[in-house]
Write a protein that binds this DNA or RNA. Structure first.
Length: 383
DNA sequence: TCTGGGGTCCTAGGACCC
DNA sequence: TCTGGGGTCCTAGGACCC
């Protein structure tokens, strides 16, 4: 059907860390990680040189958000606890995250790509899919043009994969990182994709990877050669079928060029685990603060929420959620705090608490709702 | 030495209605 | 007293992704 599709996946190289290197060029070539909540900004000394925090000095519960390729070579990767990373790479530079700068660079690279190919699916701050099917140029020419435009707009490099679908494009963009271009056709799947570990498939995470491993399936090729009925038995109808399709490189998902927000949330992990009784005042204050920030987010986005939920993570890392659907959609902090308080009462608090979060879903635009409310108040006909 | 914060999607059971 | 399916909404948990 879609045999003529040409889909690119573009992934910025070590995005947050690379943005930081634009500000601190003297760190180029060194192991640098970005992360942590209360990491000091670099300080300029009397001799004009900047003093940077080192990974070994970090104390707390933060994790690595991004690391440079030099840091990755020392075994420290995204998601790793900073304390653990500090033992592996004590002398690596630690920089605090600077999300405003990342969002700005993100907007600029996406605008640069849109100037060449406007059909874009946003996949977060540092990656996108691009539909190139309608463009006349060859793939290699396009990839070079896009990379040059991204670099001109941001000073940053990226890696691009161009293939017949999103699944393969995502894998391909990772095959020649950083600053790479990988073009793949369906005919290349056995040679280029099948030797890879199954975890390279977007959608096979730690759990599915583990289960496949226990079945003796390590590579994509081994998965592709697995009988369908076996996968159906182990993973169920939907997942089983998808696993086999994915392993064979098949994927007909269209690009999603516009999406509406389904939920908005705020959460916070405490510096130390808090006791529901002894630390009650502190918990209550943080709870109210989260509700206030959530209300601000909703207002800023022009949204109302009908379902308010909370999340707790206990000291043993078990999480529980509770939510409540209200008769009326809300966006103000007091109403959110009240609904969230109702949810909290339904959770037994036997353990110390590590994390507290508040979530709004069942979203609707404020504008339409305001119109309806005004009509109701004025006793006007709605239609 | 434990493991952030913001999301999406899927599953599954129960309530409730037709 | 016993018997349906189908559809939608609500809630809780879990996997996964960036």
């Amino acid at each position: 059907m879609n045999s003529y599709r040409r889909i690119a996946h573009l992934d910025m190289d070590a995005f947050f860390a690379s943005v930081e290197l634009l500000s601190y060029p003297e760190l180029r070539g060194q192991p640098v990680v970005v992360g942590g909540r209360r990491v000091d900004q670099p300080v300029r000394q009397a001799n004009g040189q900047r003093q940077f925090a080192r990974l070994r000095d970090y104390v707390g519960r933060g994790v690595i958000t991004t690391s440079t390729y030099e840091a990755r070579a020392l075994g420290v990767f995204s998601g790793m606890g900073l304390m653990k990373a500090g033992r592996l790479a004590p002398n690596a530079i630690l920089l605090p995250a600077n999300f405003d700068a990342y969002r700005d660079a993100s907007r600029r690279f996406k605008a640069a790509v849109a100037g060449i190919a406007p059909l874009i699916e946003d996949r977060g701050i540092d990656e996108i899919y691009i539909d190139l099917s309608a463009l006349p140029e060859e793939s290699l020419t396009l990839a070079r043009r896009i990379k040059a435009a991204v670099f001109a707009a941001t000073g940053l490099t990226c890696s691009i994969g161009i293939t017949p679908n999103k699944l393969l494009a995502k894998i391909a963009s990772d095959l020649d990182k950083p600053d790479g271009i990988t073009l793949l056709a369906m005919a290349d799947v056995p040679q280029r994709i099948w030797p890879l570990p199954v975890r390279k498939i977007n959608g096979i995470g730690p759990k599915a990877g583990e289960r496949l491993q226990r079945m003796g399936i390590q590579t994509v090729g081994e998965l592709a050669a697995t009988p369908l009925d076996l996968l159906l038995r182990r993973f169920g109808s939907s997942m089983g079928q998808w696993l086999l399709q994915a392993a064979q490189g098949h994927d007909e998902r269209p690009l999603v060029v516009a999406r509406e927000t389904k939920s908005v949330s705020r959460e916070s992990t405490f510096e130390r685990d808090l006791d529901a009784v002894r630390d009650r005042a502190q918990l209550s204050e943080m709870f109210t603060g989260l509700c206030q920030r959530l209300a601000d987010d909703l207002q800023r986005k022009g949204l109302l929420s009908r379902t308010i939920g909370i999340k707790l993570r206990f000291a043993d890392f078990q999480s529980v959620t509770r939510d409540v659907t209200l008769p009326q959609a809300v966006a103000d902090a007091v109403a959110i705090r009240q609904a969230a308080g109702q949810c909290l009462k339904r959770i037994p608090l036997a353990q110390k608490i590590r994390l507290l979060g508040v979530r709004a879903s069942g979203l609707q635009a404020q504008s339409t709702c305001v119109v309806v409310e005004q009509a109701v108040q004025a006793e006007l006909p709605l239609f």
